[in-house]
């Protein structure tokens, strides 16, 4: 059976949701970064699927841009994580709770 756009959409939704769950529940910062990437790629997939559905290129163009941005974001995110690790010696997100109230 040929995958119809709706299948892609379901997959993208699943990816996105998995990403969200990852951000909300995993305590390792690197895993959170990965989860964010998952979310972004879920959205990408949705863009591409819709683009195909409408027989346009717009969505795919967006997708390329997003990939670039995601890469930049990941780089910055990793830099921040590394910085934090150097200072605190941990990558667990529930141990960075100095700022509160």
């Amino acid at each position: 059976m040929t995958p119809a756009p709706i299948h892609y959409l379901v997959v993208s939704a699943l990816l996105f949701t998995t990403g969200v769950v990852g951000v909300l529940t995993r305590r390792n910062m690197l895993v959170i970064l990965m989860a964010i990437e998952l979310m972004l790629n879920g959205a990408n997939l949705a863009f591409v699927a819709f683009s195909r559905m409408h027989h346009q290129l717009d969505g795919q163009v967006v997708s390329v841009f997003v990939m670039t941005v995601a890469a930049a974001e990941a780089a910055i995110g990793l830099a921040i994580v590394v910085q934090l690790f150097r200072q605190r010696g941990t990558v667990r997100v529930d141990e960075t709770t100095l700022l509160r109230g």
Binding site: V23, M29, M39, G42, A43, M53, G77, V81, V93
Partner: peptide
């Protein structure tokens, strides 16, 4: 920086998915 990044990226990703749906 970490908090801003994590939450900001989360929000951006949500924004993006929303954009995908609207586009769709």
């Amino acid at each position: 920086a970490l908090k801003y990044f994590v939450l900001g990226s989360l929000a951006s990703a949500i924004l993006l998915y929303g954009m995908a749906l609207v586009y769709g």
